[in-house]
Amino acid sequence: MLTPTPTPQQSQLQAHRLANHQVVQQARQLYVQRLKEAQARYPSSAGFQEHHLVPMYLGGAKSGATYRLPTAYHKAITQAFRERWAYGQERPPPEKLQLLLVQVYSQYPIPQLIGLQP
């Protein structure tokens, strides 16, 4: 049987899926690498901690989304935030907060959001 030729829309969708798949794969690799680095940097940080997706010092709600992360990884994320935005500084305006979140999570992916067990 002949393989049917995909319509331009189908091709586009397929290309989009492939790109998404690649992004997720890259993020998974990055997570594994960052976790390893964090565990080397904080060797005595066993266990897990809850992480607020929008940290409370940046104005995130206490009842906001949290993710259970390996303690060392949580410490590395906290450092990535606080180096960029000092603890106790007035919170950023909404647009800057968005950019800050994208910046930190593109370097430190949340495992649950890319289909990984922490």
Partner: peptide
């Protein structure tokens, strides 16, 4: 950079 969705600096004092 903001227009490209990127940060140049975040915190300031």
């Amino acid at each position: 950079l903001r227009q490209q969705g990127q940060l140049f600096f975040a915190g300031w004092r």
